[in-house]
Design a protein around this nucleic acid. Structure first.
Lengths: 334, 334
DNA sequence: CTGAAAGCGCTAACAA
DNA sequence: TTGTTAGCGCTTTCAG
């Protein structure tokens, strides 16, 4: 046979069964134009009877759209497991995409070959655009996508300030850091230390900058090498060594806070009595820590914004970057 | 304009540029039939010049294949972050799929509505088949897929023994458990405890059964409620309470071992001196534990098997279930 | 070895 | 309001 024939009903079968033409069937499927109630009922009935489901490949060809969006993970997988903000974002974005009738094509792109693959996928119109789950301003994928004119958006701050043509959706790092530090101040802490994320991250830079902005007096800062528990531990140790008198701690990411709290326990300090700690991100594990971690969370809706943004760009609209507001989630650690 | 026109070159442009017909271009793209070296060169040249990439939607329509495979996560996202075997499998399978020119469509299906969506996706020919990343024999998705005649395969053991029509690709649980326990025996441990995974899991049952099979004398078994660190901790505590004399421990999953080892430390026991422990799975975190965990790992190639299996089923072939052999990864804990 | 032409299943002008 | 028809971009017979 010429074509792999599948025996699923087509729009023609429906048309025949309903006693109308293909065009009418198409109209009721897509809700375009007006269709007489009787025709509509007949078509709906036939669809039901036959178990008809429109063939996506055919629709895609006609619409010149794949209705797929690539969800790209640039981090090595170890990071994915380590820092659960990525898994959470991936889930949120995927579900949101699904809700809007699009599908999420998962791609890993931590190697050049894979990055090229992402671009080819877009050029083959296999995906209409891409969502970069982890935002690294130095990600080589970004220039590739830009050059190939592939719509994309990043989840997580790409730059300190929005730049046209390079939209991101990120937690409002400045707002969050401000809330965290003001909370520490508000509960009477006076010698506040900061554990910052790696400064290659724009988000980490903004959080640090904002925190510094409201603190005066001598600085107590340690910078973690990466967003891992181990680096949080190390940074905390470093901080305690240099500033043993801290009584409040803003840890600019919950992953880091997990490590930092372990360090704090080992040093014999009690939380929050000796030292109050506030995290950032509100990862699922935060509530299960000992004591449960007070942290800063983006308000719900980030995934919607991401999807909104990418779909807008796919439609050729120029979408702005968005900063998702934060709120303090008060638990026992501060 | 009638159709969203994108200005990418089509096969017609290539044909024109190369001075041949569409058919010839198609032949060189797909490597079918014979094409004269000169035509072939001309076509390849034109493709290069124009930056032509075949439109996937059009190919899909003609082939009656979407070239997409759904990767379904039935576990709630919290599990994904907790038990990294899922993330690892997801990554392996995705990369393997990509290598074979297919793409991985990520779908979450922990709710009825989402499960129905998976089926519809398949019926819409948006995906050709599905890979279930977590294997739960009671997953309601399985009957849905079976009934809708959607090819699928699970990663992880579905049943104790393979069943026709329900293929899985799983670590050889019996082999692994045997290796683990024999290793403990081999290093002279005599009172071996077992921490089993939740018995709803077929894999957990097989591991427990195999371990029991080579041990004689009184049994020292605790069963964890789920594959989480916390449950590993609890089960270990229970085990130590009932059998304080254990000197060797087979923990049937590394996630559980993480919790168990914490419990062991808290109980003041040293590993491996007081108590040798062997895990199962070899998750990325295993090597970073204190001490590094001796564990059982599936030999590489599982992801290939999964993809092989699903692609075979999509092609209408009846594929057998496969048990991926294991080997002991000896580190410091035993 | 190659060109012409039909068809994959659906959408959207265009008339009627 | 509806049927007709011409594509969407590619594959694959079928002649030549």
């Amino acid at each position: 046979m010429a074509y792999a024939s599948n025996n699923r009903p087509t729009i023609n079968d429906v048309a025949e069964a309903a006693g109308v033409s293909k065009g009418t069937v198409s109209r009721v499927i897509n809700g375009h134009n007006w269709v007489s109630p009787s025709s509509r009922a007949a078509v709906l009935d036939a669809i039901e009877q036959l178990g008809f489901v429109p063939n996506r490949s055919a629709q895609n060809l006609a619409f010149a759209r794949s209705n797929c969006v690539a969800c790209v993970l640039s981090e090595p997988i170890s990071m994915l497991a380590e820092n659960t903000v990525f898994t959470s974002r991936l889930e949120g974005v995927t579900k949101q995409l699904t809700m809007r009738g699009k599908s999420a094509v998962l791609m890993f792109a931590d190697q050049d070959e894979e990055r090229a693959h992402v671009v080819r996928h877009a050029q083959a119109r296999h995906v209409d655009g891409a969502i970069l789950i982890s935002a690294d301003p130095d990600d080589p994928l970004i220039p590739l996508l830009t050059e190939a004119d592939v719509p994309f958006v990043t989840t997580g701050r790409l730059f300190e300030e929005p730049r046209p043509g390079l939209p991101y959706v990120a937690t409002d790092d400045r707002m969050g850091a401000t809330q965290a530090v003001e909370h520490l101040l508000g509960i009477g802490r006076e010698r506040i230390g900061i554990i910052a994320g790696p400064l290659a991250s724009a988000g980490a830079r903004v959080r640090l900058d904002a925190a510094r902005g409201i603190l005066d007096g001598p600085e107590r800062v340690a910078v973690a090498g990466a967003f891992t528990r181990a680096d949080g531990y190390a940074a905390c140790r470093d901080l305690l060594e240099r500033f043993p008198d801290v009584d409040g701690l803003f840890v600019a990411a919950d992953v880091l806070a997990i490590g930092a709290m372990r360090c704090l326990h080992e040093s014999g300090r009690t939380i929050p009595n000796d030292l109050a700690v506030v995290g950032f991100d509100d990862i699922p594990a935060a509530a299960g820590l000992n004591p449960p971690l007070t942290t800063v969370a983006p308000v719900p809706g980030g995934a919607e914004s991401v999807v909104e943004t990418i779909l807008g760009r796919i439609d050729g609209r120029d979408m702005p970057s968005v900063d998702v507001p934060t709120r303090l989630v008060r638990r026992a650690s501060a």
